[in-house]
Design a protein around this nucleic acid. Structure first.
Lengths: 202, 202
DNA sequence: GTATAATTTGAGCGATCACTCAAAAGTGAT
DNA sequence: ATCACTTTTGAGTGATCGCTCAAATTATAC
């Protein structure tokens, strides 16, 4: 029959994702990719068509992995609101190997590639919309469970949560004093907890 | 004596700032700069030494201009807290020609150049610290004027404000539905207004 | 006008960019 | 072993990268 690929495609895309995530689209050269993928240019282009196409695959990989965080929140047995605020507090810890403690790749991409590739930009908008939709559905679920008052605008709160999440991930990358980040994370976590429905209050 | 420069240096740096701000350090080529500055490569290097040095000048220019916003807040005759929250509401309007409604150049730079130039990165941290210091001193003044309760941690609130500002400016760049941005801005504005001291409450 | 000094000019430097393609190499079926 | 087929290889493509420098240009001083 035919020759088999000596590499695992998914592993390769994942390596490319890490590289792109760190250095950006323009900042990543093909030489960089060759090293990380252990592939020669010809193979890269045979396998992934182009640098831009590979970047789109990397973005998709990133987004898929990001969804697992949201799924974990959804499947938490305790309070959904607590699960959401715990994500914020987790970023406050700024663990070096925690991908959540690095700036969102989609945001980085949107800041970088507005003038580079319309297709990449469009894809990013799609991911962002999907993500906020996912957050909203968690909040809707929380509302159905009685965790959130019925009059809370879940779409609006979802946008607020996403904004906080983005700002916090940015701050984790920028911040020099860990205590400040943790405090900021706690502030944001308390903010969302403050929405929790308490029957004893009017 | 000697030949005079046919261009205004400040104007040139300003043009470079706009270009760098939009396209980033790596994304801006010398050809781009030649067009914007109407200068040939030799002149550019004679005047600004290198692309990186020019970028540093652009960053400084950007930061100086950013400070004028803070100064305007400081010199507002009315409430300082209102002046701060008005800045957030102003971003909610997303006026196309309002530089405040574009992502912070320092943040963009930090996301892009962590792997490119340590000097640029360091300078950005400096600017960020200066800016947050400026915000804190506004809050301190508000506290002295009795606008803020004495027990408010102004340093912490300043970080929170800066995080909101950054997130909002990002959202202005990313957001597709203007109404959402405005609502988010109002949320953030109300959040800071909620700190305002009211004598009739305990 | 001539000398002097500061500035612009722009062709061109070596390096790197994203990318290509003919050739070599590996794999399974017969 | 041979074949059909897929994949890897890596030197090499033209274009562009940031940058340089000898020459030309423009100004002032005398």
């Amino acid at each position: 029959m035919a020759r088999a690929r000596p590499y695992d495609r998914q592993t390769a895309i994942d390596a490319a994702t890490q590289l792109f995530w760190e250095k950006g689209f323009v900042g990543t050269s093909l030489k960089d990719l060759e090293h990380v993928l252990s592939m020669k240019p010809g193979s890269i282009y045979a396998a992934f068509k182009s640098k831009e196409a590979l970047y789109l695959m990397a973005l998709d990989q990133y987004f898929t992995q990001s969804l697992t965080v949201l799924n974990a929140v959804n499947e938490s047995d305790g309070s959904l609101l607590s699960a959401l605020s715990d994500v914020l507090r987790r970023i406050g810890k700024n663990a070096p190997d925690d991908p959540l403690c690095r700036p969102c790749m989609v945001v980085k991409t949107l800041l970088e590639t507005a003038t580079v590739s319309a297709e990449i930009t469009d894809r990013c908008h799609l991911y962002l919309n999907n993500m906020i939709e996912g957050i909203k559905s968690v909040l809707d679920m929380a509302q159905a469970k009685g965790e959130l008052p019925a009059d809370v605008d879940t779409a609006q709160l979802a946008r607020r949560y996403q904004a906080n999440l983005t700002a916090l991930r940015l701050e984790a990358h920028v911040s020099q004093e860990p205590g400040n980040l943790d405090q900021l994370a706690n502030d944001m976590a308390e903010e969302i907890e403050r929405f929790r429905y308490r029957s004893e209050i009017a």
